[in-house]
């Protein structure tokens, strides 16, 4: 893989005219019509869209879990055809993405073993990652012994320990309660700042997208295309109460809300 990093707004991830058509036995279903965007190295990009907008399809295409029909996805200049190196995915279904027969530590450690990271370094990475997500006290528990929020923390720790260049998150907090959700948002935000990782964060929650992202991509209804690319010029320090009550925050919320509503209406076509 081409790993030369040029400074400035060099794009790490390039999604070029991606189209995805599901077809079997002569019928076709167009999930994604035309998606075209770039993500710079170190950026935090949020993607919102109405439910059924093919957000998950898009993420699976980027993650190399699904082939695109036409167009291309490249990461650091290399075309993505299968799950690439340096990419970690955090799924919405935390309960289903952790191995129930492995302990928290083993779950986090497994991808590192595969990467053939030496044992001492591995132990270090695992304990640092668990520390970072606030789970240093339960390494030997099994995931199903933990609450939903804690399980998602394990999944995040696994991604962090993997040291990816880019982190894909597919509605990661859609299934946790509001309190936990706010905590996890702040966790992801602070991890992004401290680790300088690139994040692509898919959500259906407009507030969450504005709160976290440097840029919000609003998707149309399926067949999906990019409706608008909204920059988020909020101060870099985030605070659940203060940030959300800024007047700019409110304006952005209204703007994106309108866009999503338009997207929903176009459904009838």
């Amino acid at each position: 893989m081409n790993t030369t990093r040029s400074e400035g707004d060099a794009s790490l991830l390039e999604v070029q005219h991606v189209r995805k058509v599901y077809s079997s036995g002569g019928t076709e279903f167009e999930a994604i019509r035309d998606l075209d965007f770039r993500v710079s190295d170190g950026e935090f990009l949020c993607i919102v869209g109405p439910s059924g907008a093919g957000k998950t399809t898009l993420l699976r295409c980027i993650g190399g879990l699904l082939d695109v029909t036409s167009g291309s996805v490249s990461l650091a200049g290399a075309r993505v055809t299968s799950p690439p190196e340096g990419m970690a995915i955090v799924f919405q279904e935390y309960g289903r993405s952790l191995f129930p027969w492995l302990t928290v530590r083993q779950n986090v450690e497994l991808p590192l073993r595969e990467k053939k990271v030496p044992a001492t370094r591995r132990a270090e990475l695992v304990s640092d990652a668990l520390e970072a997500v606030g789970l240093a006290h339960v390494p030997d528990s099994y995931p199903w012994q933990l609450s939903g929020g804690m399980q998602q923390r394990v999944a995040i720790a696994r991604a962090v320990a993997y040291q990816p260049r880019i982190l894909l998150m597919d509605e990661p907090f859609a299934a946790v309660d509001a309190q936990t959700r706010a905590e996890l948002e702040d966790l992801v935000f602070s991890l992004w700042k401290s680790l300088q990782v690139t994040v692509v964060f898919v959500t259906h929650d407009i507030d969450e997208a504005i709160y976290l992202g440097q840029r919000v991509l609003v998707l149309s209804n399926s067949p999906t295309s990019v409706l608008e690319d909204v920059p988020i010029p909020l101060p870099k320090a985030r605070d659940q109460l203060r940030t959300r009550s800024l007047p700019e925050f409110n304006e952005l919320r209204q703007k994106i809300h309108r866009l999503v509503q338009t997207a929903k209406r176009t459904m009838i076509t």
Partner: peptide, 24 residues
Amino acid sequence: EVLADTARSYRLSVPTRLMTLVLR
């Protein structure tokens, strides 16, 4: 499916996938 996708996205090798995912 989600677990299978997780295993793929972390590039677990085929033997590892057979042992830690499929058989378990």
